[in-house]
Amino acid sequence: MNKQSKFLIAGFVLSLVLAGVVSNFASSSPDGLEKVAEDIGFLDSAKEHSNADGPLADYGVKGIENERLSTGAAGVIGVIATAGASTGLFLLLRRKNGATK
């Protein structure tokens, strides 16, 4: 295996661990924007998300009761989906570039 593949695999595994395991230890306090909105008083102007009932809404997999497993599984799905979509996009752009040259 060349150095490039090793680096990519290491980075992907690290992302899986961060999203799948470490994510359970993240702070659950509101983020900066949400907190400011709450303190100033415009938080209630937020509408419910149109995908709020989706199978992965709020970083949990519907149907998995255990909260840690649910968050972890959502994280793993997100990592795989993001890797697929972004790498696909960038490979596509790269190919077009090669073709015009």
Binding site: G11, L18, A26, S28, S29, D31, K35, G75, S86
Partner: peptide, 27 residues
């Protein structure tokens, strides 16, 4: 660089899940 760019997006997705506390009740 294309696969590396994909990895960068993937890593950022993962790390964006990791909220860290910054002040009282804020992450």
């Amino acid at each position: 660089t294309a696969p590396l760019a994909g990895l960068t997006a993937t890593f950022i997705f993962a790390v964006q899940m990791l909220n860290f506390p910054v002040a009282a009740g804020t992450s």
